[in-house]
């Protein structure tokens, strides 16, 4: 793996009461790569995401983003540094239009300035329109996000992460509950973005999606890192197969 290390987390540990949800996990992401994070349900993927984006306070370890320690930063500060994410359960602002959703994700509502009087605002709206077009949402620009379909809201979420020109995007199950043709769209858009140099970290259940996109895959099980390698190496790893199809039957119970 070459390139600059953009995210570097060491021995990240998170406990909920007696349960160790994430257990001393080392994870790093290099500039320009697409890293996949897989594991059975309940293996700690989303919790790890939440630790990395500072939703949870971690009980041990350290997280560096672009060479700066973010272990004690607030979620919004981490976001402003260029670490964007999507969510397992879709989060968009339902009562706002797609355009407003997109604009807010860049502007952060810092000042009570009126819409679109300044050049900066016009640029922002142009950018929102551009991203909406890239994600095939142009004709819904003035539609309230709450009325979109699940797939369109996934795309909007992706658009919202793109607005502030992030350095790294964490995607949490971008394909769950989405119809197959939209999955292809999402995959295609992600590939385009990666070609342009965007770094991605994906949590995914769709193994085909992972092997098509990722250059490297990390497998979590019971909060621990089980394997780390290329998609092909992972597919033939005994321990991974054991974790997924082993005796505990935890593959589809959350």
């Amino acid at each position: 793996m070459s390139g600059i290390r953009i995210l570097d987390a060491r021995s990240v540990t998170k406990r909920f009461g007696g349960l160790v949800a994430v257990d001393e996990v080392d994870i790093h992401v290099d500039q320009g790569e697409v890293l996949g994070l897989i594991g059975p349900n309940g293996s700690g993927k989303t919790t790890l995401f939440n630790c990395l984006t500072r939703v949870h306070n971690i009980d041990g370890g350290s997280i560096e983003f672009k060479g700066k320690d973010i272990t004690s930063k607030k979620p919004y500060q981490v976001a402003r540094m260029g670490l964007a994410r999507t969510f397992q359960v879709i989060r968009v602002y339902g009562d706002l239009t797609i355009e407003e959703n997109l604009v807010l994700s860049q502007q952060w509502g810092a000042l009570p300035t009126h819409r679109s009087f300044t050049k900066a605002h016009r640029d922002l709206h142009d950018k929102a329109a551009e991203i909406a077009e890239f994600l095939l949402l142009s004709k819904h620009l003035r539609t309230k996000a709450g009325t979109l379909s699940g797939g369109q809201r996934r795309l909007l979420e992706l658009g919202m992460t793109l607005m502030p020109d992030p350095d790294l995007i964490l995607l949490d199950e971008a394909t769950s509950g989405i119809n197959p043709s939209l999955i292809e769209t999402i995959k295609d858009r992600l590939a385009v973005l990666n070609n342009k140099g965007l770094t991605l970290l994906l949590v995914e259940h769709d193994i085909r999606f992972i092997s098509d996109l990722c250059t490297r895959v990390i497998v979590l099980n019971y909060g621990r890192k089980l394997a780390d390698g290329t998609p092909d190496e992972i597919k033939s790893d005994e321990r991974v197969l054991e974790a997924y199809f082993g005796d505990d039957g935890s593959t589809d119970v959350e």
Binding site: T53, V55, A79, L104, W108, G109
Partner: peptide, 9 residues
């Protein structure tokens, strides 16, 4: 929560 994680204070 979403707003917080998208950079809004």
């Amino acid at each position: 929560i979403g707003a917080d994680m998208r950079g809004i204070n």
